[in-house]
Design a protein around this nucleic acid. Structure first.
Lengths: 159, 159
DNA sequence: TCGTGAACGATACATTATATCATTTATAGC
DNA sequence: GCTATAAATGATATAATGTATCGTTCACGA
């Protein structure tokens, strides 16, 4: 996930708006601000980091309450994802395409640069984790794993 | 993980103390209180839940600062584990045995009863996740996954 | 145009976490 | 046993994060 250029961001916002309309929801100005902040960030942002970002790039200041409300909304619309391990948010990588999150979605978190890569679960991984869980009597329901590691770029920079 | 009876708890505390001594550390009264609170809880506890638990079961009240400090200490000693997804703590399942956390340790979280099961990673799961990550150019370093599901007991109760 | 509900603004407050410094306690060396 | 030292804790203030509540504004349909 890299910081988006403005024209890319605009295209995504149009796609996001279309997705909302399809769900009978609206992508208001405030919601657009929040989503835009996340799309333009190379890293996941906490609620207050989103707030700061919005307030830096806009004339009118947004109340913290709104950020929390709007993040909940955007998450319900699958336009952003919440990373439980860090309690931060990222914009969905699949806003513009027709990806429907049928597969479980996992996140690869780079420990070096904090970038996030959204990936679909593999059947192999699903099975292996199901096995591991069922050996302990658990029936898995998790839809999302957050795995730490080092991304390609940082591997190259280090080596 | 079930709530521990007192005599079990005492045995674990002795083992924990031995482990600390081996590391040149001490299991003080306060640390014992915190560890004991976690051992006696069937569920993971947040820092302030630990605090409340300690203050209910003791004459002298503990400052919040101490809980944070002591949780950090106990985590370093591998006597408790921090669950990143909920930002709560559980006592380690392997205090009394000679388990050394050589393997990656994962946690199965029951969505119904909030119980936690600590399990060793399987080779199968390690490989599957490595594959999934390397397909996206990531080199995994995660040592700990937190997987949600339904535990045996709750499956039976529901069925 | 008006009624309705959704979205937002504003305020207060609750919860969680950290910074800092003083005090106490355990331990080693004498 | 006594003291110097570092570790551990106590105490206080404050920062950061998250929620509750209610009044107002706005979009949309009847």
């Amino acid at each position: 996930m890299v910081q988006l250029k403005q024209f890319q961001c605009d295209a995504l916002l149009r796609a996001a708006e279309a997705a909302c309309v399809e769900n009978g929801a609206r992508l208001t100005h405030r919601r657009r601000q929040v989503l835009s902040a996340l799309m333009q960030s190379p890293n996941p942002l906490s609620a207050y980091e989103v707030l700061d970002s919005c307030n830096r790039s806009a004339a009118t200041s947004m109340p913290a309450m709104s950020v929390y409300r709007i993040l909940d909304f955007l998450e319900q619309q699958s336009l952003v994802h919440r990373l439980a391990s860090s309690n931060k948010y990222v914009s969905c990588s699949h806003i513009a395409c027709d990806h429907k999150h049928f597969q479980k979605t996992h996140f690869l978190l780079c420990e070096a640069c904090s970038s996030v890569e959204e990936v679909d679960a593999t059947e192999e991984a699903n099975q292996a984790l199901d096995h591991m869980a069922s050996a302990a009597g658990f029936k898995l329901t998790s839809q999302q794993f957050e795995l730490s590691g080092i991304c390609t770029t940082c591997q190259n920079n280090a080596g």
